[in-house]
Amino acid sequence: MIKRILEETVKTALTRNASVALMGPRQVGKTTLALDLTETLPSVYLDLESRLDLIRIDDVRIFHLANEGKLIVLDEVQRIPEIFSEIRGIIDQERRKGNRYGQFLFLGSASMDLLQRSGESLAGRISYLELFPINVLEYAEDDQEKLNMLWVRGGFPESLLAESDQASFEWRLNFIKTYLERDIPMLGPRIPAAALERFWTMLTHNQGSVFNASHLARNLDVSSVTIARYLDLMTDLLLVRRLKPWTFNTGKRLIRSPKVYVRDSGITHALLNIENHNNLLGHPVVGMSWEGFVIENIMSILHTRAQAYYYGSPGGAEIDLVLEFGNGENWAIEIKKSFYPKLSKGFHVACEDLKPERKFVIYSGNDTFFLGEDIMAISISAFMKLVSKKS
């Protein structure tokens, strides 16, 4: 079993908050992480997709009283968002007794923003964390073979640890089918599965592109409003990322639409019918797949350290990823699927506009070296370690 970096963060959050919400897509490992915690903490676990567990929690006050002093773990909590108003009263009652921390752990498969809207009554009583698929530091470090496997199969545990590429590929196809035919309808939106699958696949063909609703709408024969609704849904389910554009204080005309990525590289490859590393290397999406993979790995260790953007101008000045840290410091990151990275003129022009404190090229190799005086070529694992140490 792979030790998840976020486990210690969840433990710490429970010592500082009455409740913690751990979000992430289905099958990403939330339940496994939570059950690991329950082995060291007095606790009780309920799966709210189980009819019996739903009955048990029907009166949450009585259930809490029967399990006083235990951490109550509620899995798939987005199914009953009305429970948060009741839990607020329980938390406030426990506060008056002097019990302020570690009472509830919520697990959910929708976005933190979606749960926050449902759980507004817990303001000041809850901390939100996101569990990403398994990342490079958790699995691959500087092992090139493992890195390639993680990239091809993605970070969902059952896909990554499957006995073969074929078994991994079949798991991901079933994951996609289950989301489209069961999980999304269960959350309420009435969207034809075939239409949503075409949209999801279209995003993979346009991985890392600036979002153009009109272009997608024409290709799918729906309205731009419908496309925007599809994107909102896939973003809320933590399956797609909208990377915001940098639009601050440069005095330049900049692109203001987000870039869109299918978040897990393995899901990207399954939607494109790419089964193994050799198939991927010969596919037109290889460069943008690597870019999305790197960005998602970096996002998995950012937490509150930095905000992430891309920088682009109509004239071609572009930076793949800009990290803005809390002290106002900016890092510019270019991402290249090459052992011998070369930078475009657009990156240099963009850096002249932005004036970042540090410049990096994340490439496929393991060595660290300088390209010119101030641009560091670095591996994804070394860069993630560098960010992790940044306060």
Rank of each mutant, 00 (worst) to 15 (best):
C351L: 10
I134E: 12
E94C: 00
L74A: 14
I255L: 07
G89T: 08
G89F: 03
V285L: 09
K11S: 09
T15M: 07
L302C: 13
Q166N: 09
V60Q: 02
M299C: 11
L386E: 15
I378R: 08
T178N: 15
W246M: 04
T178Y: 04
L37Q: 05
A194C: 00
T226F: 12
Y139R: 11
L220P: 00
V260E: 00
F106E: 07
T247L: 15
V294E: 14
L233I: 09
E357T: 06
G316E: 01
D232I: 03
S289N: 08
E329R: 02
L238N: 10
R182N: 06
A123S: 11
F248V: 06
K337M: 09
G372Q: 09
A140I: 10
D264V: 06
G315Y: 11
W290L: 12
G119Q: 10
H215V: 03
L52A: 09
F370G: 01
E94V: 04
G29Q: 00
D374P: 06
N297C: 11
L14Q: 05
L281N: 12
P133T: 05
E141P: 00
L231I: 03
T32E: 10
S121M: 01
S388F: 06
N249H: 14
Y101E: 15
G188F: 08
R26D: 00
S121T: 02
T38G: 10
N135K: 02
D142E: 12
A167Q: 13
G287L: 13
N278W: 02
D183C: 14
L33Q: 00
R153Q: 09
D320I: 03
Y311V: 01
R79G: 00
N135M: 03
A194E: 15
N249K: 11
S224F: 01
T38W: 08
Y309N: 08
G251Y: 13
R305H: 10
E82Q: 11
L160W: 08
E181T: 05
I267C: 05
E49F: 06
R218Q: 13
K244A: 15
Q93T: 15
V240G: 02
G372L: 14
R358D: 12
N99E: 07
E145I: 13
E76M: 08
G312L: 07
D165K: 02
Y179M: 09
F369E: 06
L129Y: 02
S344Q: 12
L271A: 09
S209R: 02
S19C: 04
Q27A: 07
A110Y: 08
P284Y: 09
I298M: 14
D113A: 15
T268R: 15
R79F: 07
L272G: 11
N279P: 04
L160E: 10
E163I: 14
D264R: 05
G346D: 12
T9V: 11
L37K: 03
G155P: 07
H348Q: 07
N135D: 15
L74K: 05
F106K: 04
A213E: 06
N174M: 12
D53W: 04
E76S: 12
H64C: 04
S391E: 13
L114V: 09
V322Q: 02
E130Q: 12
E373S: 14
R241G: 00
S164E: 04
K70N: 13
G266A: 07
A162C: 14
E291N: 10
S43M: 06
V222E: 02
L41F: 13
S338H: 12
R79N: 11
P42I: 06
S111H: 03
F199W: 08
